[in-house]
């Protein structure tokens, strides 16, 4: 049919209001196609429907009208196609960093009965260092293989599995938890990585490190990333494409519309660190101001219009900028 990995087709999401029972439209006839390997930054103010789009792609929220397709298959439930790094830390609190990282391969490679039966046996065999027994148990072999793989991926995500692998999520810093959550998703090599405001609550330095990390992992694994944020700077820095959602827009006849619509859809270079010349340029100011005015200023809704970006640095890759 086409080479779009994600296709959102005439997607409208509405639900009955708790106040008066009338239907509230969250998303209004959204159409969006993503090609494999794109890094889409989805921006907009809080409550404008960014996370709803993410949920529709994930399969945890069904559109009232329209449909979402991944690889031309309609999304009807949460599947392994997507990896998820939510806003709030989603690590399993009862598992250590390493156990969290191997959760995917263990869940995928072994059955529930196998885990319930062999977990105590493997625990005892581990305790008494009975290598021969461990090699005989399939669950143990899968676990060891996953552990080796997880250590490698955790290291790539800037973590030290030897030092911190045995720590529980409550013993890790916010940045370490989010890195672990990303590593946990990457272990499964998903087709699409969904990041729902993954930097909220992180300090500025960690935030920049996380931007770099996502950029590097996106390059390494060549996966499609949908990254939700309300920080325009992060979106412009990281995305190869920026999509702005706003609930404040005018329709063709000049009347204010209902629900969120895509008001800006622009291709960018993507590169985790914005070149300083670009940040200082009028172009960047114009872009960020345009995004802000279209997403935040509810008193002055604007017609949906395309926004042309012409500054040369905005289209250079991070490597090209670094080379300069």
């Amino acid at each position: 049919m086409n080479n779009h990995i994600i296709k959102i087709q005439n997607c409208t999401v509405s639900y009955p209001s708790a106040k008066n029972g009338q239907r509230v439209t969250v998303l209004n006839d959204i159409n969006l196609q993503l090609q494999k390997g794109e890094l889409l930054a989805l921006v907009g103010t809080s409550g404008c429907g960014k996370s709803t789009i993410l949920s529709a792609i994930l399969g945890s929220q069904f559109p009232t009208k329209g449909a979402v397709f991944i690889d031309n298959k309609e999304v009807t439930r949460v599947t392994r196609d997507c990896g998820l790094v939510p806003q709030n830390y989603s690590l399993f609190t009862n598992n250590t960093m390493l156990e969290n990282a191997i959760a995917g391969p263990i869940l995928e490679g072994t059955s529930l009965q196998e885990r319930i039966l062999f977990t105590p046996i493997v625990f005892l065999a581990d305790l008494f260092k009975a290598q021969k027994i461990l090699k005989l148990i399939r669950y143990s072999r899968i676990r060891d293989e996953a552990l080796a793989n997880a250590k490698e991926i955790l290291r790539r995500c800037g973590l030290d599995p030897e030092k911190d692998g045995g720590k529980y999520p409550y013993e890790l810093s916010g940045g370490m938890r989010q890195r672990t959550a990303i590593a946990q998703s990457l272990m499964m090599r998903p087709k699409i990585l969904l990041l729902d405001e993954p930097f909220s609550g992180l300090d500025e330095k960690t935030r920049q490190e996380m931007l770099d990390l996502i950029y590097e992992q996106w390059k390494r694994y060549n996966i499609t990333v949908v990254f939700v944020t309300h920080h325009v700077h992060d979106a412009v820095a990281l995305g190869t494409r920026i999509v702005c959602l706003s609930q404040h827009w005018l329709d063709e006849s000049g009347n204010p519309g209902q629900g969120a619509k895509i008001v800006i859809d622009k291709k960018l270079s993507g590169g985790a660190i914005l070149p300083s010349e670009f940040v200082k340029s009028e172009e960047f100011t114009l872009l960020t101001e345009s995004i802000r005015s279209r997403t935040i200023d509810k008193d002055n809704p604007l017609p949906i219009a395309s926004f042309e970006l012409t500054h040369p640095d905005a289209f250079k890759t991070k490597e090209q900028n670094n080379a300069q």
Partner: peptide, 27 residues
């Protein structure tokens, strides 16, 4: 139990029963 954890487990390949055991019961 946070819904996000349940979705996360499903993206990691967990079945409904595995969500009950791995995510809900153990936590």
């Amino acid at each position: 139990v946070k819904k996000d954890q349940i979705y996360k487990a499903q993206t990691l390949g967990a079945t409904e029963m595995e969500v009950v055991w791995h995510v809900v019961y153990r936590q």
